[in-house]
Measured scan of single mutants.
Amino acid sequence: KNAAKIVNEALNQGITLFVSDNKLKYKTNRDSIPSELLEEWKQHKQELIDFLTQLES
């Protein structure tokens, strides 16, 4: 999976991924984040940080 797909899947579940101080963060109104999503974010962390940083610049 690529970073764009992961970010879109998160958005579809009401979760916004973003970068703050070079760290991957998220915002959501959900009570909890599915563990498989958290695991996927960890596996692709640097790719996600790079992707989101490019989007914001």
Score class of each variant (00 low, 15 high):
residue 22 N to Q: 09
residue 53 T to Q: 11
residue 4 A to R: 06
residue 33 I to V: 13
residue 49 I to L: 07
residue 50 D to F: 10
residue 11 L to W: 08
residue 4 A to N: 07
residue 39 E to R: 08
residue 13 Q to N: 13
residue 10 A to H: 01
residue 28 T to G: 06
residue 57 S to Y: 08
residue 17 L to E: 01
residue 34 P to C: 03
residue 26 Y to D: 01
residue 41 W to Q: 00
residue 55 L to T: 12
residue 39 E to N: 08
residue 15 I to A: 03
residue 39 E to D: 14
residue 22 N to V: 03
residue 51 F to E: 02
residue 36 E to W: 09
residue 4 A to H: 09
residue 36 E to P: 07
residue 7 V to Y: 15
residue 4 A to T: 06
residue 45 K to H: 14
residue 36 E to D: 09
residue 33 I to D: 02
residue 47 E to C: 06
residue 7 V to I: 13
residue 21 D to V: 04
residue 45 K to W: 11
residue 3 A to D: 02
residue 40 E to F: 11
residue 33 I to S: 02
residue 12 N to W: 08
residue 55 L to M: 10
residue 31 D to Y: 06
residue 30 R to Y: 05
residue 31 D to P: 15
residue 22 N to Y: 06
residue 28 T to L: 03
residue 54 Q to S: 15
residue 35 S to W: 10
residue 57 S to W: 08
residue 47 E to T: 06
residue 5 K to R: 14
residue 48 L to D: 00
residue 15 I to F: 07
residue 38 L to N: 04
residue 37 L to A: 04
residue 46 Q to P: 05
residue 29 N to C: 09
residue 43 Q to T: 15
residue 19 V to K: 03
residue 36 E to H: 13
residue 10 A to N: 02
residue 13 Q to G: 05
residue 36 E to T: 10
residue 37 L to H: 03
residue 14 G to I: 01
residue 13 Q to S: 07
residue 14 G to N: 05
residue 31 D to M: 06
residue 26 Y to N: 02
residue 24 L to F: 03
residue 33 I to L: 07
residue 27 K to D: 07
residue 45 K to E: 15
residue 15 I to S: 01
residue 16 T to Y: 12
residue 41 W to L: 07
residue 30 R to F: 06
residue 4 A to I: 07
residue 17 L to W: 01
residue 46 Q to L: 08
residue 25 K to C: 11
residue 14 G to Y: 04
residue 31 D to N: 10
residue 8 N to S: 13
residue 20 S to K: 14
residue 50 D to Q: 12
residue 37 L to D: 02
residue 32 S to L: 08
residue 40 E to T: 12
residue 2 N to P: 12
residue 7 V to E: 01
residue 19 V to R: 02
residue 57 S to P: 12
residue 25 K to M: 15
residue 25 K to Q: 14
residue 37 L to R: 03
residue 8 N to L: 15
residue 57 S to G: 14
residue 53 T to K: 13
residue 37 L to M: 14
residue 28 T to H: 07
residue 41 W to R: 00
residue 23 K to P: 00
residue 52 L to D: 00
residue 36 E to C: 07
residue 23 K to G: 07
residue 47 E to N: 05
residue 30 R to I: 07
residue 19 V to C: 04
residue 15 I to C: 04
residue 37 L to K: 04
residue 1 K to C: 08
residue 5 K to G: 10
residue 44 H to R: 05
residue 26 Y to P: 01
residue 16 T to S: 07
residue 35 S to R: 12
residue 34 P to M: 03
residue 32 S to M: 08
residue 23 K to D: 14
residue 48 L to R: 00
residue 45 K to R: 14
residue 26 Y to G: 02
residue 27 K to Q: 09
residue 15 I to H: 03
residue 6 I to M: 10
residue 19 V to M: 05
residue 32 S to V: 11
residue 49 I to D: 01
residue 28 T to C: 05
residue 11 L to E: 07
residue 41 W to I: 10
residue 46 Q to A: 10
residue 18 F to Y: 15
residue 22 N to P: 01
residue 4 A to G: 08
residue 17 L to M: 04
residue 29 N to D: 14
residue 43 Q to S: 11
residue 45 K to D: 09
residue 44 H to A: 06
residue 48 L to Q: 00
residue 24 L to R: 00
residue 8 N to V: 11
residue 24 L to H: 01
residue 40 E to P: 02
residue 45 K to M: 15
residue 13 Q to E: 08
residue 8 N to H: 13
residue 47 E to I: 13
residue 49 I to E: 03
residue 38 L to W: 08
residue 53 T to A: 07
residue 39 E to A: 10
residue 37 L to E: 01
residue 45 K to V: 14
residue 15 I to K: 00
residue 38 L to Y: 08
residue 25 K to W: 10
residue 9 E to Q: 07
residue 52 L to F: 06
residue 27 K to P: 01
residue 50 D to E: 15
residue 2 N to E: 13
residue 28 T to I: 03
residue 25 K to A: 10
residue 52 L to H: 01
residue 29 N to A: 09
residue 54 Q to L: 09
residue 57 S to Q: 13
residue 39 E to P: 03
residue 38 L to V: 09
residue 48 L to E: 00
residue 11 L to F: 10
residue 44 H to G: 04
residue 56 E to Y: 10
residue 56 E to A: 13
residue 21 D to M: 07
residue 34 P to D: 06
residue 39 E to W: 08
residue 22 N to H: 09
